[in-house]
Design a protein around this nucleic acid. Sequence first.
DNA 1: AAGATGTAATTCACATGTTAACTACAAGCG
DNA 2: CGCTTGTAGTTAACATGTGAATTACATCTT
Lengths: 134, 134
Amino acid sequence: MALLRAREVIMAHFRPMLARHDITEQQWRVLRVLAETGPLEATELANRASILPPSLTRIIKALEEREFISRNKVKDDGRRALLAISPTGVALIEELAPERTAIYEAIEKRYGAAEHERLLDMLESLIQSESAES
Amino acid sequence: MALLRAREVIMAHFRPMLARHDITEQQWRVLRVLAETGPLEATELANRASILPPSLTRIIKALEEREFISRNKVKDDGRRALLAISPTGVALIEELAPERTAIYEAIEKRYGAAEHERLLDMLESLIQSESAES
DNA sequence: AAGATGTAATTCACATGTTAACTACAAGCG
DNA sequence: CGCTTGTAGTTAACATGTGAATTACATCTT
């Protein structure tokens, strides 16, 4: 599957950066979503980060132990909890941001900025056409 | 990452079929590669199926136990082994082929055949431009 | 209020992804 | 020949993907 291979070659560029800071790709995704969107409940976070609930449970646990995120129970509903990125987490994201941008720009340079954008549009379109199924 | 989500929505269509026959997506990929290409050594098979060696070792073991594939050591080199799909494996692939085709055609119908082909070309191009790095 | 139903999150079991270390064998080199 | 280097495959350790079952809590219904 071309989608699989494409994702592999892209992520290969980011892995050294993530390994240097001892976080996984998924942990990074979770932190980025929280940094960009603000505090979220677990279900919403799982959707936005494309991570399944069982995985998210484990990731949250790991990130909480390292104090990159915090959790606060929602009153009025004992099930839910609001997850928020901590200052430490924000600092990590900000530290990685320049490198992340540089990597993306390098990819765009090789592949072509216009192609890159067109590819993203097509992928979004594909996701739309398929995810709208009953 | 759009690539991740796109892959998810596509594979979601195939999972019920695979679950019915009690094989995983990766096992299916391995069998298809062997069916299409003929007997291969493990390294080559791993590359073609986009599966890492440790995963392939486990998958081969599982497929061997169910007698979907066979392995024969290469004489002159005690390390290598030729992996080949068995008649049982071929039968499984052939049984699934029509359904697989139908699913792809349904996707093309929703997304557009021309779009689909263009997307594949762009993905291949991206893979080329990135995988050629030193 | 008690029971049925629904929902958020977790836990379980197993398969795979990922990196590093390791084994077994081959090929080159002094 | 014995040693080094290289290569194919495996094993180990840990994180995530995946589907099913479970827990805890809410809400609905009567």
